Amino acid sequence: MNHSGTVDLALWQVASAYIFLLIVFIIVRIKKIPREKLIVISALRMTLQLILVGYLLVYIFKYPNPWITLVIIFFMLSFAVFNVYQRSKATLHFALKKMVGVAMFVGVGLSFCYMMLIVLRLDPWYEPRYFIPIGGMIIGKTMTGVALGVNNLVNGMKEQRHTIEGALMLGATPKQATKDIINQAFDSAMLPTINAMVGMGIVFLPGMMTGQIIAGQQPVTAVKYQIAVMLGVAGTVSITVLIFLHLAYKAFFNDHLQFLLTKRDAKKEDKPVEYN
């Protein structure tokens, strides 16, 4: 136990935790599930990435700099956008990818500024000890929400193509024809965040709150931070997903308000749209 009252793990204690990885490895081997290689690679990547980040944060916390902090947040946000592309089950055209990026940067940027400057009132505003960990939590949850929004929007457009085209033929605008799909995509994107809020405190203790308590912080103070951050996460996810959906649905229509979904449709209109 160190001077702050927290238990400092020795290297052999950390190494002993890898027994859980061995258990997972044995189970998938017995079940003949071909995931051994993925499990090993994931564990190695996690270990190396966390070690590198740990030493990097030691330097950043010791020598705080606004530009370094902003560059790190920019890198995290850019990587999150790339992850949304990777997690999409559909092939996204550049126009839709651009909308994902715009939504992520605008939604997260606006919410982040309010969170840091108004709610937490950091001094200095770029204090990396708060800025980077809280930013990571908000960006990570937002990434998950946008990825769900992307998949549900594209799938909804595919599955309800005839319904959309029928509505257009009856005089509906693209916004009216896709209203239900957009609402469903938004609901699906928000569901993980809402479920987390419902179970928080009774079913499980969230990571940030647990970390602060282990670090010696008073539970009530940890609760205050967790509430503020979770509300920030919910707001950021909703704003970002809403921006994306209300930009993205337009990419499925041409200038004549005709529905475009497949490669064949795109070639007819001489427009490079591909969502298959």
Rank of each mutant, 00 (worst) to 15 (best):
I27A: 10
Y130S: 00
N65F: 00
K267R: 15
V241A: 14
Y59N: 15
K268W: 10
V146E: 06
W125I: 00
L77V: 07
F25D: 03
G232R: 01
A17F: 08
F253S: 00
K62R: 13
Q176W: 05
K271H: 11
V100G: 02
S78K: 13
V71W: 01
Q86V: 06
H246M: 13
D123L: 06
P124A: 02
A177S: 03
K89M: 10
V108P: 01
V150L: 08
G207Y: 03
M197N: 12
N276Y: 13
R161F: 05
N2Q: 05
I51N: 06
I182V: 11
V24Y: 06
S188C: 14
L110Q: 03
T47N: 10
R129C: 03
F112C: 06
G145L: 01
N83C: 06
E269V: 15
L122I: 00
M190T: 08
A17L: 11
A266H: 06
L120M: 09
T173P: 07
F82D: 04
A10L: 13
V102S: 09
F20P: 09
L242W: 04
N276D: 12
G211L: 09
F94A: 04
K263D: 14
Y18G: 09
L148E: 06
T47M: 02
V84H: 00
K97Q: 12
G5D: 10
M116E: 07
M46G: 12
T91N: 12
F79Y: 08
I243M: 05
I19A: 13
Q212P: 02
P128E: 02
P124L: 00
R35H: 04
Y63C: 01
K267V: 09
N276Q: 13
I138Y: 07
N254M: 03
N65I: 01
W67Q: 09
M190S: 14
V28G: 03
F204K: 15
N195Y: 01
A17C: 05
D265R: 05
L77K: 06
I138A: 01
A196M: 11
G145C: 07
T91S: 11
A172I: 07
S88F: 03
M209I: 12
P128F: 02
M76V: 10
Q184L: 12
G171Y: 11
I118R: 04
P133K: 10
K141D: 13
V154G: 02
S238T: 13
V14T: 15
M157H: 11
I227V: 12
A17T: 08
I213R: 01
P128Y: 00
W125L: 02
L191E: 15
K268A: 14
N183E: 10
E127N: 09
D8F: 14
R129A: 03
A103W: 02
R121S: 01
G207W: 09
R45T: 12
A10E: 11
M46D: 07
A167R: 13
K224F: 07
G201S: 08
G235T: 10
R87V: 00
K179D: 12
F112V: 10
N151L: 06
I139G: 00
R121E: 01
Q13N: 14
T142D: 07
N65C: 00
